[in-house]
């Protein structure tokens, strides 16, 4: 970007500049809405910004699996066990 005619080392963040990082995933977070207490901790802690909150929706959160790397932080911070990590490609 070069506002003011200067060549600057800045850019705007956009989705997926490194490709579909969801293919890196070994463990997959699986959401169970029946256990969810809508605390938003998973949304807050997700380092990849792939968890969206759906206010008033049947499923309170949704996970963008195209970019989720499967780090498991959401599952780890969930106070009720509503997000479980399961192996990819497993039974």
């Amino acid at each position: 970007m070069n506002p003011h005619g200067k060549v600057l080392p800045i850019s705007r963040p956009g989705p997926g500049v490194a490709g579909k990082t969801g293919t890196w995933r070994v463990m997959r977070p699986v959401y169970d809405p029946s256990k969810c207490v809508k605390c938003r901790l998973c949304w807050l802690y997700c380092p990849e910004n792939v968890i969206d909150v759906n206010e008033g929706g049947e499923r309170f959160i949704s996970i963008d699996y195209d970019y989720c790397k499967g780090c498991g932080i959401c599952s780890s911070v969930c106070p009720t066990g509503a997000i479980k990590m399961v192996p990819e490609g497993g039974a």
């Binding site: 200067k6 080392p9 800045i10 850019s11 705007r12 963040p13």
Partner: peptide, 17 residues
């Protein structure tokens, strides 16, 4: 200054070229 870092207007500085 050439840009300002502020909440609600995200800019990346120094990302891999």
């Amino acid at each position: 200054q050439p840009y300002i870092m502020k909440a609600g207007d995200p800019i990346l500085m120094g990302n891999v070229p």
